[in-house]
Design a protein around this nucleic acid. Structure first.
Lengths: 122, 122
DNA sequence: ATTTGCAGTGCCTAATTGACACTTAGTACA
DNA sequence: TGTACTAAGTGTCAATTAGGCACTGCAAAT
């Protein structure tokens, strides 16, 4: 689908904040993993090796606020919390998987590009 | 394509920094626009209504450093600078266009979700 | 002669992230 | 009965990052 300049100018003001919510450091990884199956807080945390509780809590809150994931408290003991994708969030599955695959396949290329860029001036 | 848990654990350490470079506030818009055709600095700036010179310069530097865009100085007067996608960057065109389309189509949904979330507690 | 457009840089402050400690509640162990 | 562990967070403070605004240098147009 192609956009005319007017399309762009008209939709841009609304699109930018949307992309700002979505194009976030942890979002792609979190949503990619949640697309596989609903997961609990600490299961996600283990998988996102290196994330802090706070960062994960904040990211999940933001995703929940934007209607992309659902938070469900399971009143077992101890209390469990399960996060799952909403239908709205599912719409991101395809592009995010593509990005994930791209990142896996081209990490070397990026690293090389960075090295040669940094050598161009020091 | 599906990944096993081992795949994920193995590739994750390298993938995360890649996604951090790519999942940035302005990146999706910049690359989406550059995919259409090479553009000059101020042409991009006009289109990214609201971006400051500094933000655009920084974003383009980062993209150049990562090998996703190419910066070409045209020695006319006054000097012009043209930015274009590299073959590596082209790999992002498809997922980014999907994200852009998704953002255009679902901006309302996000806004609604935010509203009802914010009303749940105040 | 001064304004306009181009492509930036520099400085300083505001906003966001991240590290790390603390919390509350239940379960298991000894 | 006390210690320790897991789950799912919250709070605080420091550091990193982003954004605002002013400034540069050069050429062409008015």
């Amino acid at each position: 689908m192609a956009y005319t300049e007017e399309d762009v100018l008209r939709t841009l003001p609304g699109v930018r904040p949307v992309l700002e919510q979505v194009a976030h450091k942890w979002t792609i990884l979190i949503l990619t993993f949640l697309c596989e199956e609903p997961k609990r807080f600490n299961a996600l945390k283990r998988r996102l090796d290196g994330i802090t509780q706070k960062a994960l809590t904040d990211a999940l809150r933001r995703l929940e606020r934007n209607g992309l994931v659902e938070r469900r408290v399971i009143s077992s003991s101890p209390v469990a919390v399960e996060y799952s994708m909403t239908p709205l969030g599912r719409g991101l599955q395809e592009p995010f998987l593509m990005l994930y695959d791209w990142a896996v396949q081209h990490q070397e290329n990026l690293a090389d590009a960075q090295k040669s860029f940094d050598n161009r001036d020091g």
